[in-house]
Amino acid sequence: MKPLVAPPAWTQPLPEADPPAGMAVHQLPTGTYETPAALAVRGGSFRDKRQFAASAILVRHPRGDLLIDAGFGADLAAHVAMLPRFMRSAHHVGRTVGEQLDASGYDRSRLLGVVLTHSHWDHASGLDSLRDTPIWLNAHERRHAAEHWDGKVFRHVSRGHEIHEYGFDDRPYLGFPSSHDVHGDGAVVIVHAGGHTTGSVIVFVTVPSGTRYAFIGDLTWQLDGIRRRAERPWLMSRLADRDPHQVRQDLLRMIALEGTMHIVPAHDLRAYEGIPGLTPEPAGPAH
């Protein structure tokens, strides 16, 4: 199977960003589940077993922190039981995002919410450990999660949560036609990439060091999609993607950006290398 034709590399200036001091990005891994590479990328082997990451990202910002996705939840077994049998696979469970935040001494009142890259079970399950945290969804994904069969786990774990519905401005960002600048400083920008689900998003984050991240959700499941330009297998694309053509166009946009930023497909463990974990908060002064 031929890879996608390589798009021209991005040569325009990157968007302006003014990330404030104190901004930081942390990974919060919550577990993995096993998937043959043959079901993950075109040309993959059934002998090559990939451990799909189920992780969240904490983005610290002086004006309020955000989580990107929620990973596995405390009631994961019940969530997996809600899935069609063909979607269930062996998995390894770690600590939930809520447990990791609490163990570090993190003050949850700093959290503005959880931005879901999309509402599938392996991104939303951990909402059950974040009961008082708002869920950030755009109108497209809110509708998808409410109506589509693959939103069953989301509908279960989101009960009782405040839903913060955000919109997009007609302001292009790195080739994507619409965007939402969370803090107005270019440090955290959400773009609509509605191919995997109708409201799927990519979250671009720039930290004070100048390092840029792109948390691309399930635009591709593995870095092979970026580095080898390998799409999902045809059948998996038809099962998983609402608009395969849109997925292809957005994937090409991200391939063009390779080398300008740290691109993180949600389910590739390799993509999280170099992103620090969450360490305990420093103790306050003794009295």
Rank of each mutant, 00 (worst) to 15 (best):
Met1Ser: 06
Pro8His: 15
Pro8Tyr: 11
Pro8Lys: 15
Ala9Ser: 06
Thr11Arg: 05
Gln12Ala: 15
Pro20Arg: 00
Ala21Arg: 03
Met23Tyr: 08
Ala24His: 03
His26Gly: 09
Pro29Tyr: 07
Thr30Glu: 05
Gly31Phe: 01
Thr32Glu: 05
Thr35Gln: 12
Leu39Trp: 10
Arg42Pro: 12
Ser45Ile: 01
Asp48His: 11
Lys49Glu: 08
Lys49Thr: 12
Gln51Pro: 01
Ala54Arg: 04
Ala54Asp: 08
Ser55Asn: 13
Ser55Glu: 09
Leu58Asn: 09
His61Glu: 13
Pro62His: 05
Arg63Met: 13
Leu66Phe: 13
Phe72Gly: 11
Leu76Trp: 15
Met82Pro: 08
Met82Asp: 11
Arg85Phe: 14
His92Pro: 04
Gly94Ser: 09
Thr96Ala: 14
Asp102His: 13
Asp102Gly: 12
Ser104Phe: 01
Gly105Met: 07
Gly105Asn: 12
Tyr106Ala: 01
Asp107Trp: 00
Ser109Ala: 05
Leu112Asp: 08
Leu112Arg: 02
Val114His: 04
Thr117Gly: 00
Ser119Met: 12
Ser119Trp: 04
Trp121Tyr: 15
Asp122Trp: 13
Asp122Arg: 11
Ala124Pro: 03
Ala124His: 07
Asp128Lys: 02
Asp128Glu: 06
Ser129Ile: 08
Thr133Ala: 10
Pro134Val: 09
Arg142Thr: 10
Arg143Asp: 14
Ala146Trp: 06
Glu147Arg: 08
Trp149Ser: 14
Asp150Asn: 15
Asp150Trp: 13
Arg159Cys: 09
His161Phe: 05
Tyr166Arg: 07
Gly167Asp: 00
Asp169Lys: 01
Arg171Asn: 09
Leu174Pro: 03
Gly175Ala: 02
Gly175Arg: 01
Phe176Ser: 07
Ser179Ala: 01
Ser179Ile: 06
Asp181Leu: 02
Val182Ser: 14
His183Leu: 07
Val191Thr: 09
His192Asn: 15
Ala193Val: 11
His196Gln: 13
Thr197Arg: 04
Thr197Asn: 05
Phe204Gln: 13
Ser209Ala: 10
Tyr213Thr: 08
Phe215Trp: 13
Trp221Pro: 11
Met236Ile: 06
Ala240Gln: 14
Arg242Met: 11
Arg242Ser: 14
Pro244Met: 03
Gln246Ala: 15
Arg248Met: 10
Asp250Ser: 06
Leu251Glu: 07
Arg253Glu: 02
Ile255Ser: 03
Leu257Gln: 12
Glu258Trp: 13
Glu258Arg: 09
Thr260Pro: 07
His262Cys: 01
His262Ser: 03
His262Val: 02
Ile263Glu: 11
Val264Pro: 03
Val264Ala: 05
Pro265Thr: 04
Pro265Trp: 05
Pro265Phe: 03
Pro265Cys: 10
Pro265Tyr: 06
His267Val: 09
Ala271Gly: 00
Ala271Met: 06
Pro276Arg: 07
Ala283Ser: 15
